[in-house]
Amino acid sequence: MRKLLTISALVLLTACGEKPKSEEVLIIEEPKNILEDLTYVIDTVVVDSGEEFINLSRGLYFSDVSIDKNSLFIFDRGRLSFQEVDLDQMKLLGTYPFEMEGPNGIGKGGIFQLLPDRKLMIPSVSKTAIYNLQGELISNLKLITDELDHMSDIDEFTLLNEIHFDPKSGVFYSLPGNYTSGIRELAIINATTNKGKAIKLPAMEKAGNFRVFFNTENEKAIEVEEYSLSLLHDKIYITCTVTGGVYRYNPATDDLEYIEFNHQLIPNEKTGDIINEVYSEKEFNAEYRKVASQVSYLKLMWDDETSRFYRLAYKGVLGDKQIEPISYKVFLLAYTEDMGLVGEATIPDFNKVPESYFFKDGKLWSYVNVEDELGFAVFTFNF
């Protein structure tokens, strides 16, 4: 999807890296398509916020779901507070105020991670720390690039891309990179020793071939492929919209695998030639349409109910003249715990990409705004 940046907001940076101990390429596929006869029902549920107000001006952009999928936490940047929603009872449980400045200050950030013990990891350029729900700082975490091995020229700001903290090992994982190149790397940083490294992701560097950079003296806009990082089952999974392949990193062995799939329903990756830097809005729109009409693969999601990985993919349906897609074809893909492809299907009669979605109890939950109230479209799949 399109990303527009002003001149002042466009950050130019690079990231260096070193190879992990080993990198393997696996091609995993299974013959049975469990989603061949996919049907579904959508129910819309709305959260009871009582007398409280849930700020949906940014949707659920600043939110996180608990590991057990029982709670959703939303950060309200305007009021500097976190709100907890019970996803079983569908009601607002509480609001937790925080401070911007002072010893317990969280700064001006917005992203956060909900840890298993109901504490919050809140990263920012100036300070990264763990807090309890009473707004008290529990521990400071180091995230200083100029002290990291082989990472001196990585800007701290890009270390926040898809940042995750593993409380069991005390290690950060994130995807820093160069915005205009469209290429990311895997950063691994020990929060105690402040030692770390960056690992290149060569199979996803093709993402740089599909960026579109509109570059003039007075205006800049950029279209880049999106990456995601998930910490699941003590392993790191990395996806990129440019390809159906998945990187899996095992911290215990320092092994990096690139897993490829032979998807039958949709192309396995984007193809074609894109002009990466253009100097007029007309050229930008023309190249953008070439990208928007192709398949994009989204993040991996794990579902405890079915013990499978799922992910969504989509293709834009373009009008004759309209720049943005007028609708989308959306696909559901299923994989085993060992990353074997076992299912792929079009989600029939559905023409938009779900927002801020996750799997819970075998169902896909997607954020919807219901007359300015927090709601979810809940997909019950039958196959």
Rank of each mutant, 00 (worst) to 15 (best):
K270Q: 15
E281H: 03
L318P: 13
L332M: 09
A334F: 06
V278W: 02
S307N: 09
L312T: 05
Y335W: 11
S296M: 12
D303V: 02
A292N: 09
N285V: 14
Y328G: 04
G319W: 07
S296F: 08
S280K: 10
D273V: 13
L318M: 14
T306A: 02
V330D: 07
V295F: 00
S280I: 04
D304R: 14
A286C: 14
Y328C: 01
L332K: 03
I326W: 12
E305V: 09
F331A: 02
A313D: 00
K299F: 01
Y297G: 03
T306S: 04
Y279P: 07
I323G: 13
G272A: 10
N276P: 06
L312P: 03
L300P: 00
Q294L: 11
Y310E: 02
G316S: 07
D304S: 08
M301A: 10
V295G: 00
D303Q: 03
Y310V: 09
K290V: 11
Y335F: 15
L298V: 06
K282R: 13
L300W: 01
V278H: 04
I326E: 15
G316Q: 05
P325Q: 00
N285D: 13
E281F: 08
A313N: 01
D320S: 13
D304E: 15
S293N: 12
K282N: 07
L332G: 03
A286H: 15
S296Q: 13
T306H: 03
A313M: 04
V278I: 10
Q322A: 15
V291D: 01
G319T: 02
F331I: 03
F284A: 11
G272K: 05
Y288H: 09
A334I: 04
S296C: 12
E269G: 05
Q294I: 12
F284G: 05
D304M: 14
E324Q: 12
W302A: 07
S280W: 04
R311A: 06
V278P: 02
G316H: 02
Q322H: 15
F331V: 01
S293I: 12
N285M: 15
V278A: 06
L318R: 13
E277S: 04
W302H: 06
F284H: 11
T271R: 09
V295Q: 02
Y314F: 00
Y279S: 03
E283P: 12
N285F: 14
M301H: 06
N276W: 07
Q322D: 13
I323D: 14
G319C: 05
I274A: 09
D304V: 08
Y288R: 08
A286I: 15
W302Q: 06
E281Y: 00
S296E: 12
D320E: 13
D304P: 12
L333F: 09
D273S: 11
I275P: 06
Y297T: 07
I274C: 10
Y310S: 05
P325R: 00
T336M: 05
T336C: 02
F309S: 02
S327I: 01
T336N: 08
S293V: 13
Y297I: 05
Y288P: 04
V278D: 04
S327T: 04
S280T: 12
Q294W: 10
S327N: 07
W302T: 06
I275R: 15
Y328T: 03
N285H: 14
E324Y: 10
